[in-house]
């Protein structure tokens, strides 16, 4: 179980203290709000799509370290990617966080592989995936998403209350 301490060390020392792409962006074309009612985490993601290319992305909100670091690393990973690449990465990340895939099998995941350890913490999986649900909602112009939303096609059953 020691590698989830490693996860904390890595994400907290880096992205939680110095989140990337934190704040508003100027010309948002798509946005969504994400909420985890179980712990009160909430964040907003705004992005600028230019001919299917994510040319700007920003996030804001209040959350635990895992959620914040996941959001920060996600924005770095999808910036200057196409919508299709971002959607593919969302699916890879969700599978990784739920322990359904090995990091080494994944092509695009890169540094996000550190989140493989989260699958050991079923109650915290939702914290890690909330930014990705929210990005999915933003890309599809959804106004709001929630880890508990019935209508959310990616609604997870892991770590339910």
């Amino acid at each position: 179980m020691s590698n989830y301490k490693d996860l904390y060390q890595e994400v907290i020392l880096d992205h939680n203290k110095k989140p990337r792409n934190y704040g508003q962006i100027e010309k948002a074309t798509h946005q969504a709000a994400g909420h985890n009612p179980l712990c009160g985490d909430h964040l907003q993601i705004a992005l600028e799509l230019n001919q299917d290319l994510i040319c700007a992305i920003g996030f804001s909100g209040e959350s635990c370290a895992i959620c914040k670091a996941s959001a920060s690393m996600m924005t770095v990973a999808v910036k200057n990617k196409t919508r299709a690449d971002a959607e593919a990465l969302i699916q890879e990340f969700l599978a990784l966080a739920k322990g359904q895939l090995n990091a080494i099998d994944l092509i695009q995941i890169g540094r996000l592989a550190v989140f493989a350890g989260i699958s050991q913490l079923p109650t915290r999986v939702k914290c890690a995936i909330l930014p990705w649900h929210t990005l999915h909602a933003a890309l599809n112009s959804g106004a709001e998403t929630s880890t508990e939303a019935e209508h959310d096609p990616m609604r997870t059953t892991i770590g339910g209350a």
Binding site: Y8, D41, R124, C127
Partner: peptide
Amino acid sequence: HPHDVGTLLNL
């Protein structure tokens, strides 16, 4: 965040 406190105390 309390969830981070709880997760680390569990260690």
